[in-house]
Amino acid sequence: MNFALPEDNLLRLQAQLNMSGTFNHTVSRMPYSRDQVMFRIKIERGQPTTAVRIEMGDQVHTLDVQTVHPEKHLQVADFIDAIANGRVDGGELAPPRVTRQPLLPEPDALLNDTQLGRLKHMVRHGGFTSLETGHEHPINVAVHRTRPADGVTVIASIGTARPRTKCFTVRGDQRECLKRLLISIEHLHIIATPQRAAAA
C-alpha cells in the first residue's frame, strides 16, 4: 500500500495553487489504512511558473510548474506522492493519478484588454479606475507616480462596508510597477472570491 494525497486534499491543493501562501496537508496510506504523514507546502505563484516547496519530515523538495497548466495540481500531487513513498531521489515515477472529479477548465483572464490598457496608462501617468471583475463591488485602484525616483504608490480596494485594501509603493521601471500592480489586483480578486473558502 502506497501513501497518496486524498481526493479532498487534492481539491484543496487545486484551489491553493491559484494563490501564494503556506498550507498544511496530509498523505494517507491507501486505500484502507489510517496511517498519515503530515507535510507543509509553500506556494509562490508567479508568471510563467509557480514555485512549490514541500517540507515532509526532515526532507525539503522544490518543484516549478507552469502557472497556466490546467493539471498543475495533479503534477504537484504526483510529486508529493513520490516524496511520501521515497521515490523522489531514486527517480522512480509515481503511478498515474486517477481522479473521479472532472477537470475544471482554466478560468478566463481576470482583466480585459481595455482594463489592462488603462492600468498601463496609470503606471505611466497616475490616475484612478474601477475594475469590474465579476464581483458585487469593483476593485478600485489609485496610482500616484513617485518623484524623483521612478516608481508608483498604489492604493487598491474592494468592498464598501468592510473593504479589503492594499497600499504599497514600488520602485523600478514601468514593467516592474505594472507587474506588482497586477499581482495586487489578483490577490484582492482572490480574497473576494467564494472559491477561496475551498483553499482554507
Rank of each mutant, 00 (worst) to 15 (best):
M1R: 08
F3M: 04
Q14E: 09
N18Q: 10
M19R: 12
G21S: 09
H25M: 12
R29L: 10
M30V: 14
M38W: 12
I43K: 06
I43Q: 01
A51P: 00
R53K: 13
I54V: 15
V60R: 11
V68T: 06
H73C: 01
L74W: 00
F79W: 09
I80P: 00
A84Q: 00
R87D: 14
V88Y: 11
L93M: 13
P95H: 13
P95F: 14
R97T: 15
R97W: 12
V98T: 13
Q101D: 10
E106Y: 13
L110K: 06
L110A: 05
L111N: 11
L111Q: 11
D113P: 14
L119D: 05
L119I: 02
H121R: 04
M122W: 04
H125I: 01
T129K: 11
E132D: 15
H135F: 01
P138Y: 02
N140H: 11
V143M: 03
H144A: 13
H144G: 06
D150Q: 06
T153L: 12
I155A: 11
S157M: 06
S157H: 08
S157N: 08
A161N: 01
R164K: 14
T165L: 14
E176K: 06
R180I: 00
S184N: 04
L188K: 07
P194G: 03
